[in-house]
Design a protein around this nucleic acid. Sequence first.
DNA 1: ACCTGAACACCGTTCAAGT
DNA 2: ACCTGAACACCGTTCAAGT
Lengths: 237, 237
Amino acid sequence: MSDEQPRTRTKQAGAGGSEVLWLRDTGPRPPRRNTPLTLERIITAAIAELDAAGAERLTMRKLAERLEVTSTALYWHVATKEDLLDLALDHVVGEVPVPAPDSQPRAGLRTVLTGWRAAMLAHPWSPGLLGRPMLGPNVLARTEFIQAMLVRAGLSGVDLAAATRTLAGFVIGASMADATWRRLDDPGAIAKVRAHILDAAELYPTLSTSGFVDAAWSDDDLFVLGLERVLDLLLPA
Amino acid sequence: MSDEQPRTRTKQAGAGGSEVLWLRDTGPRPPRRNTPLTLERIITAAIAELDAAGAERLTMRKLAERLEVTSTALYWHVATKEDLLDLALDHVVGEVPVPAPDSQPRAGLRTVLTGWRAAMLAHPWSPGLLGRPMLGPNVLARTEFIQAMLVRAGLSGVDLAAATRTLAGFVIGASMADATWRRLDDPGAIAKVRAHILDAAELYPTLSTSGFVDAAWSDDDLFVLGLERVLDLLLPA
DNA sequence: ACCTGAACACCGTTCAAGT
DNA sequence: ACCTGAACACCGTTCAAGT
C-alpha cells in the first residue's frame, strides 16, 4: 500500500542483459506469474471489467492490466475481442440455473425466463450484446429447456416455433429495454425524459397522461405480469 | 473515369502560398464544395455506409471520405459518433409511416408493428443499436401511437403499461433475432449451426428434432403469427 | 507452451488556423 | 459559419523473440 511502484519487474534503462554480473538480481528468480492465465480467468476478468467500466469501454489493454499481463498475451487464449464478448455473454447466461427437466411446464418456464432476465440485468451491458449470434452452450441449453417445456405442454409444429420465438423475444426485448434505463446512470435522466415528453404534450397526448413517464410500476412487476399473461396465451389450459 | 487523381485540390509539395504568382492557378477559384454539408446529408450517408459496411465498421473517417470532406468537418454538425448513431436509428424508424390516429386499434397496431420490424430489418445493423435510449422524435411518435391505440381499445393503468412493454418487447426481440441471422451472411452459417446442434443431439434432444434448426417457416410468417396471437391476448374482444 | 516487446495500421476527437 | 490540417491519445492485432 505504501509502495506505489508497479509489481512487475522494472525495466532497467538501456539494459539488455549487458548489466555487470554483480549488479544483477540474485537469489531465486521470481516466478514468472503467480497465477497462470487461463481462458476462464480472462472471461471472469472481462465480466468484472465490463461491470465496472461499462459496455463499450472494455479494452484488451485495460483487461490485460487487470490480469497483470501484456495485452498481446490475451491473444494466445482468445482469437479476437469479439470472441471474448461472446464468451462473456454466454457465461452470464450460464448464471441462470436450468430447472430440472421434469418440471411442470409453466413453473419451469417461469423460472428460466425470470432468471434469464435477472442474470442479464445483473450485468446491464449484456443485453447490448444480444445482437450477436447466441449459440454458446449455456444459451443453447436454456433454449433446449424452453422448447422441451413447450413440447411437454403439448405444442408442436408452427405453434411450437412461434411460441419459442415469442418467449425469447419477450425476454430479450424486456431485458434490453430495462437494461437501457439502468445503464442511464445520469440520476436526472429519467426526470429529463419526463420533462421532455411533458413539454411536448401536444405531440404526445397519450404518453404524457398515461403514466408512461411516471414509472408508477417497477420493471420487475411489469415483467412478471406480462410474462404470466403470455404464458396464459401460449400454454393450453 | 480515365483520370484516377482525387478531385480535391492537390497539395503542392512544400507549398505554403509561396508559389510564384504566375504559376498559381488562375481563373475562378473552384467553389469550396459542390454541396454543403448538412446534418441531413451526414445521416443519410451514415445509413448508406452502415448498410454497405455493416454495423461496427462505420468510421468517421470513411464516412467523411464518402462525403468528400475531412473527418473533422463532421464534428461541426455532430457532437459525437454515438449521437450520429442515435440519429441514424431514429431516422430508420422514421421510415415507418404512422397510421392515421383514428385507425381501428387492432389494424393500427398491426400496421405500425409490422412496419417497424420491416424498417429495421431493411437495415440489419439497426436492431443492434436498440441498446441505446430510444428517445428520438420518430420513436416517440410511434410509441405514442401504440399507446393511443391501446387506450382506445380500453386499456389503462397497469394493464396499459404492461401491454405497451409486451408489444415493444415483442417487436424488439423479434427484430434483433431476425437481424442477427440476416447479418450472418456466411452462406454456410445456418448449415453449420444445424450440424453443430445435430452433432450434440444428446444435449439438445428437443432442438434437434423440433424443426428448430430446419427453418421450415419464414421469419416473417412466424412474426405475423405471433403478433396476431399477442394482439388476441392484449385486446379485449 | 505461454508470454513479452515492438510495431502496424488504424481509431475518435480537439483545436488552431484558414476562408 | 463552416471547413482543413496537424496532432493527441488511444485502439485491436500480428509477429518475432524470449523462457
